[in-house]
Design a protein around this nucleic acid. Structure first.
Length: 587
RNA sequence: GCCCCCGUAGCUCAAUUGGACAGAGUGCCUGACUUCGAAUCAGUAGGUUGCGCGUUCGAGCCGCGCCGGGGGCGCCA
């Protein structure tokens, strides 16, 4: 926003360097960390260190001398309120009145578009969620769903064209076990509500039965064989029950405000996967050890000529010739680029335990000569555990079901909403409770580094205070409440300047940084950056709210503050939108 | 045996990618609703950033070595 002024100062610095025989260095600007006033800074430690050449000297002192000398030269430069040298840094303070007007005006003009990047005309795919049909949907599955959803929202906000893909595991041993249990003990049953929960119990029951009587494995194998030769009864049962799961997932995705542009199903890739295996064999990349009772494998390290083991060996086909996960993943990766040849990146939001697997898949495709292979990237995340480092596993029964969490969170939120918004209709109250409850669930999954384990416990999951979504939503509601009293009439920018308070400057500062935060989040694929930004924004607004009266003061404060409240409301709304969290009108 | 990730306040987590005094929330204690909504705010206390070397003007961040925890390594997904 002050690029021209930054360049002016940079040229002064470079001129100074030339005169003093100092090396030409790039001037890097950073925000001044703490202040009540808006400004940027650059340091001279590097320059000071170089000024000594081979000899040693007091770098900090020298840096400060340089900063002071340059500051002295800049006294006459326009557009800055104050320039100072402190601790080896040159601090440049902008004219806050001028700056704040620019920022507020821009936000109000751009509205929901504010802070979003220009369209880049580059297409990306984000694959995430990939739930298993015929199993329960538990809290552990939320991380991929939310992470992928928000990464997609961030990339979209940054200017990319994003395709959201889902890859449900609709076939595999777990499905066969389920079908076996259903056909043998539950034939004809059908759930009318809580579909995924019911699907989960049938699966858990199957696992238990087989554990108790291992001889039943034989029956499982038989069902698998029938599936493989497309036995009509098995296929029909699979199709019908699979749909129940998908219906259940859709219900939850709608509730969570997650949508997909494209569905790839695991079952679609058995055949194409085997074709790729044939290709691997034909090109001598894969080794067929089936004659010796082995499988079809790719010795990746050997093919690459690596001495140390890195990619190891990947099994691409079972010894009995059936496809496994790796087989299908090879075909899936290819299909994505057949459907969208212009993909700049193909992201896989899958848990960290599959890191080696994806390295193997991508490397094998590279060995096959697919030029798009390097554009595939795994986006790993750590698991959601239960206290005591207990892994959530449907077969162990150590899960917290998503339905239960949503129900509990919504119920708690509803109790508060009813208390505080008695005048609203029940329907409206429930709508708000959902926004608050689900927002509260979303936030903690996004607000930590994805390579850190999340430990789920009911108490903190349902804690709506502090660093949490409801705090941010509340700031939005407060801003909204002020503007509602004015029937949302925002005065034009015409009031004379006045000395802004520290709270106002801080708030404007955070609003102004949004565009680059979004770009940074997109570059690093980190939702955490946006949760931090949203929280800081809310905190700054709450601080402003308690310190700076709006409606009860006279102009020029009144008009400017109303405009600031409107800008803050917009900025908070835009941040929440990227996080997929609803901004309620009241709560 | 090889490889990957984590370790920061009692607890849960940040830290502008190597920069200014390591910051928030939560919990404890103390205050603020007759005010634009208290799901809020203000204040007190809490640190040898697991340990040790090294690189650097400067290290929570980079390198090496330990300690502790988690995960992965040819027919699960």
């Amino acid at each position: 926003m002050f690029e021209a002024e930054q360049k002016t100062i940079a040229s002064y610095i470079q001129e100074y360097c030339k005169e003093n025989d100092l090396p030409d260095v790039e001037v890097k600007w950073a925000w001044i960390p703490f202040n009540g006033q808006w400004g940027i800074a650059t340091s001279f430690f590097q320059l000071a260190a170089k000024s000594f050449g081979q000899s040693r000297g007091n770098v900090a002192q020298r840096a400060n001398e340089i900063a002071a000398e340059i500051a002295g030269r800049l006294t006459g430069v326009e557009g800055f309120e104050r320039i100072e040298a402190v601790n080896g840094y040159l601090n440049v303070y902008f004219s806050t009145a001028d700056y704040s007007r620019r920022v507020i005006q821009q936000v109000l003009e751009e509205g929901g578009q504010y802070a979003r990047g220009p369209r880049l005309d580059q297409r990306l795919m984000v694959e995430f969620s990939h739930p298993n049909t015929h199993k329960a949907f538990h809290v552990g599955h939320l991380r991929s769903a939310f992470l992928g959803d928000v990464v997609a929202r961030i990339l979209d906000a940054a200017g990319y064209d994003v395709i959201r893909a889902n890859y449900p595991g609709d076939i595999g041993l777990h499905v066969i076990k389920w079908l076996w249990n259903y056909m043998k003990y539950h034939k004809g049953e059908k759930p009318d509500r809580d579909i995924t929960r019911w699907m989960g119990t049938i699966y858990a029951e199957a696992v238990k039965r087989i554990e108790q009587e291992p001889a039943l494995e034989e029956e499982i194998r038989e069902i698998y064989a029938r599936w493989d030769r497309r036995d009509p009864e098995v296929v029909a049962c699979w199709e019908e029950t699979r749909q129940w799961s998908l219906d259940g997932f859709n219900e939850m995705y709608n509730l969570l405000d997650i949508h997909f542009d494209r569905y790839y199903f695991n079952s679609m890739f058995e055949k194409p996967g085997k074709e790729i295996v044939d290709e691997l064999l034909a090109k001598g990349i894969a080794d067929d050890e089936r004659a010796d009772g082995g499988a079809v494998i790719v010795k990746i390290d050997q093919k690459l000529g690596l001495k140390d083991e890195k990619y190891r060996v990947m099994v691409v086909l079972r010894s009995d010739g059936t496809a496994l996960y790796a087989t299908e993943d090879l075909a899936l990766a290819r299909q994505k680029f057949i459907d969208y040849p212009d993909l700049v990146k193909s992201y896989y939001v899958v848990d960290v335990r599959q890191s080696l697997h994806f390295q193997q898949v991508f490397k094998t495709l590279e060995l096959l000569g697919y030029d798009w292979a390097p554009r595939c990237q795994h986006l790993p995340y750590e698991l959601v555990n239960l206290p005591g480092n207990v892994v959530m596993a449907s077969r162990e029964g150590t899960v917290v079901l998503l339905e239960d969490l949503i129900r509990e969170a919504t119920t708690r939120a509803l109790a508060v909403v009813k208390e505080k918004n008695r005048e609203l209709s029940e329907e409206k109250q429930l709508e708000i409770a959902k926004a608050v409850g689900i927002g509260a669930i979303r936030f903690p999954m996004l607000s930590r580094e994805s390579n850190k384990v999340v430990t789920f416990d009911w108490e903190s999951a349902l804690d709506f205070n502090g660093q949490a979504a409801p705090y941010i939503q509340y700031a939005y509601v407060r801003a909204n409440s002020i503007l509602r009293k004015l029937d949302n009439f925002i005065p034009a920018d015409g009031a004379p300047d006045y000395k802004l308070s520290e709270q106002e400057v801080t708030l404007i500062d955070l609003i102004a940084r949004m565009p680059e935060e979004i770009q940074k989040a997109a570059r690093d694929l980190k939702p955490l950056i946006i949760t931090n930004q949203a929280y800081e924004l809310a905190r700054a607004f709450n601080d402003f709210y308690t310190q700076c009266p709006v409606l009860s003061v006279e102009d020029p404060q009144r008009s400017t503050r109303i405009r600031l409240v409107a800008a803050a409301r917009q900025a908070i709304a835009n941040s929440l939108a990227i996080l997929g969290i609803t901004a309620p009108q009241a709560m």
